[in-house]
């Protein structure tokens, strides 16, 4: 943010600015349509050679991308959409049942951790219904899935539940995550970290949460990081896989502060 003179920058200025940012964000689709990877060039500065070189590299491996709204929920939305999309396309009942049991177990964990079941159930049931409908073949195509992801009664509840699911996983596996939390944030407990950095809607997530999301759902993800930095390597696009060394099934483009979905050639 630019430096602002705090004496002339009142609370209502702040609120107005927030509203402007919000209405700008809301003009982009929650989950966009598939687009040719070539159109990615326009999403970046066309004059930035460094970035264009990286996009050339991406084009070798990916043919299509799909945007997700940059409202702070983008990682979780992109992740959940990709997981559901795979269930719709592959009709793999084992995977569908596995994901559904992950959901069910997380609800039990949350209740044991003292979260209010009555309120959580509102979010849980929307996501559980969605996965059930995929399993029963009621959501037959990716277009239908996309419709559900933008439906007003579904779009936020499913993201909200994912946030609590990841939170439960991180709290129950605190030993694994607390060193990173202590090392990279100013939180000293998992509880305060999860409540502040994860459980609130529209809160952008960090790498610790990205890693925990994959572990909680048993999904392997590859991130392709495209920024303006010059890397001292023959491969310009930095690639990170969660969990490390695994064979990824879903792919995302990471630009600082934002995630979109990528599709392999």
């Amino acid at each position: 943010m630019d430096h602002v003179d705090s004496s002339s920058f009142s609370m209502s200025d702040y609120e107005r600015q927030q509203e402007e940012i919000e209405s700008e964000t809301k003009s982009s689709p929650i989950v966009g349509d598939k687009q040719s990877i070539e159109s990615l060039r326009q999403a970046y500065n066309p004059d930035n050679e460094q970035v264009q070189k990286k996009i050339n590299e991406l084009i070798q491996n990916y043919s299509v991308w799909r945007t997700v709204r940059g409202d702070g929920n983008c990682f979780i939305r992109a992740f959940l959409f990709s997981v559901c999309e795979e269930l719709v396309l592959k009709k793999d009942t084992t995977k569908q049942k596995h994901f559904q049991s992950v959901l069910k177990n997380s609800l039990e964990s949350l209740v044991n951790l003292g979260y209010p079941e009555m309120l959580l159930d509102d979010f849980y049931s929307v996501l559980d219904d969605l996965v059930t409908e995929i399993g029963e073949g009621k959501i037959k195509s990716v277009d239908e899935l996309q419709q559900r992801f933008v439906d007003p009664d579904t779009k936020d509840a499913i993201i909200c539940y994912m946030r609590f699911l990841i939170s439960a996983y991180m709290q129950l596996n605190g030993d694994e995550y607390i060193p990173y939390v202590l090392g990279t944030t100013d939180h000293v407990t998992m509880d305060s970290y999860c409540k502040t950095e994860l459980e609130g809607m529209y809160k952008e997530v960090d790498n610790i949460i990205v890693s925990a999301t994959c572990a909680a759902c048993g999904v392997s993800l590859r991130l392709e990081c495209v920024d303006a930095q010059n890397r001292d390597s023959t491969q310009q696009v930095q690639t990170i896989t969660f969990p490390d060394q695994s064979e990824p099934t879903i792919f995302m483009l990471y630009r600082p502060g934002h995630y979109d979905i990528l599709y392999k050639r």
């Binding site: 979260y115 309120l119 959580l120 909200c160 305060s192 409540k195 459980e199 609130g200 809607m201």
Partner: peptide, 14 residues
Amino acid sequence: EYGYEKSSERWLPI
């Protein structure tokens, strides 16, 4: 912007 301490209870959907 309101100057609350980081540890203070914030709004969550639950």
